[in-house]
């Protein structure tokens, strides 16, 4: 038996909206520690890792580890039916191939029950080591989204260069070139407005912009985004979900043949 209650159904809706274009089907792994999902996009260039800790839920019960394969577009269809301030309760048991989403209005006057068919998904589960990165940049998530969208209108790839003074995003295309340089900015009123650059050694990597633009769909989930880079390693783009977990996107760099 699995049962979990979230104060805001809108949070899960937003999470699924931010990843469903990248991965259409995925398996949620449920255990005593929480709900996890890890899936590659269909071209196996990027990977999404979602972690929702059990202590971030209002109620969380998982008698034993349990896998729930879901079509994320179908899940999104159901989550869209939740009211803005509805709570969400998820229920599933191994006896039937369904997960139930219960949407309850704040005054408890409306209770909606949606049952989603679960599916068997065969997927590779990858072990991602906790690596030390050469450079870690934290910046407002809206700023990162603006940069990748702006550069996406110039070129297909972005070259990211981190030095101790700044982080540069550069793109080139048929119409010309663009470089956006962000300096470290620590003296801000709100911590989420900071741009923080932690550099062990300088890095310079190139990535496909369309994936980074896709990752930035998660902007509404967190005011700040953390970008971790190491030479010839996948970039990690992390959105922290306050009090419950994170969504991390991994993207392999372009490597010279």
């Amino acid at each position: 038996m699995f049962e979990a209650q979230m104060a805001q159904a809108a949070l899960l809706k937003q999470i699924i909206e931010s990843i469903r274009e990248l991965i259409t089907e995925a398996t949620f792994e449920v255990s005593g520690t929480g709900m996890m999902l890890q899936a590659m996009d269909s071209s196996h260039v990027s990977l999404v890792a979602l972690n929702l800790r059990s202590d971030g839920f209002q109620l969380f019960r998982a008698d034993r580890p349990f896998s729930m394969g879901m079509n994320l577009n179908h899940m999104a269809k159901m989550l869209k039916c939740a009211g803005k301030d509805d709570t969400l309760t998820m229920r599933a048991d191994e006896a039937n191939d369904l997960v139930t989403f219960l949407f309850e209005s704040p005054g408890n006057e409306r209770l909606a029950e949606f049952e989603l068919k679960l599916m068997d998904i065969t997927s590779e589960n990858l072990g991602i080591p906790d690596a030390e990165y050469s450079a870690t940049v934290s910046m407002p998530s809206a700023e990162f989204q603006r940069i990748v969208k702006d550069l996406g209108s110039i070129g297909d790839t972005v070259e990211i260069t981190v030095t101790k003074d700044d982080v540069r995003f550069a793109a080139s295309g048929d119409i010309g070139n663009a470089t956006i340089k962000c300096r470290q900015l620590l003296d801000t009123e709100k911590p989420e407005d900071r741009t923080l650059i932690e550099m062990v050694e300088p890095v310079n990597l190139t990535f496909a912009l369309r994936y980074l633009i896709n990752f930035s769909k998660a902007t509404s989930l967190a005011p700040s985004v953390t970008i971790k880079l190491s030479t010839e390693m996948p970039v990690v783009v992390e959105y922290k979900l306050s009090d419950i977990g994170y969504v991390r996107f991994y993207l392999a760099p372009k490597i010279e043949d």
């Binding site: 590659m40 196996h44 260039v45 990027s46 990977l47 590779e124 589960n125 990858l126 072990g127 991602i128 080591p129 790839t157 190139t206 496909a208 390693m233 996948p234 991994y250 993207l251 392999a252 760099p253 372009k254 490597i255 010279e256 043949d257």
Partner: peptide, 14 residues
């Protein structure tokens, strides 16, 4: 031109 490697090649299979 630059190649695009498979993301799985960077991680270990479980």
């Amino acid at each position: 031109s630059a190649g695009q490697p498979n993301i799985a090649s960077f991680f270990t299979k479980r």
